[in-house]
């Protein structure tokens, strides 16, 4: 984890905001803004009842780091659907891969500190099987 310090500041217990790059020419939100809307594409976005998107309010550092992962994973999900129908959009492919690398970095940082999210995690090595450690996603204890 060479880049860990770039992403997490131990001293003031405060994660640096991800530095999203947007190389796509199309109109697109950054991962967090897309995530809280449920839509990466401003042209497709339409609202109901709520006049502004709900900000995620992480309760602690675990939830905060998870929010960055959630936002990047969401950007990948929505770009994936877009790319299925626009498979020759090189800018979208480049953006997908930038977010993918950034997500991998946050996943490693999170799993090193809070335990595995994925069964591919390097963090599963050790004397106890960390996969079973709470909280489970539906328990919202973070």
């Amino acid at each position: 984890m060479n880049n860990y310090r770039d992403y997490y500041n131990y001293a003031n217990n405060n994660y640096n905001q991800p530095n999203y790059k947007n190389t796509l020419n199309a109109n697109i939100y950054d991962p967090y803004q897309g995530f809280i809307r449920g839509n990466m594409f401003p042209d497709l976005y339409n609202t109901y009842k709520l006049n502004k998107p709900v900000e995620i309010m992480p309760k602690n550092e675990q939830a905060e780091l998870l929010t960055y992962i959630d936002a990047l994973c969401f950007a990948l999900i929505d770009l994936n659907l877009f790319l299925d129908l626009n498979p020759n959009d090189e800018n979208a492919i480049r953006l997908y891969n930038e977010y993918r690398k950034e997500k991998d970095m946050y996943m490693r940082a999170y799993q090193d500190k809070f335990g595995p999210i994925s069964l591919d995690s390097a963090n599963l090595d050790g004397s106890t099987w960390k996969w079973i450690k709470s909280p489970w996603p539906w328990e919202c204890e973070y």
Binding site: G38, D70, S118, L119
Partner: peptide, 9 residues
């Protein structure tokens, strides 16, 4: 593959 997180919290 399962990931131990929700798509949205």
């Amino acid at each position: 593959k399962y990931e131990k997180k929700l798509e949205y919290p």
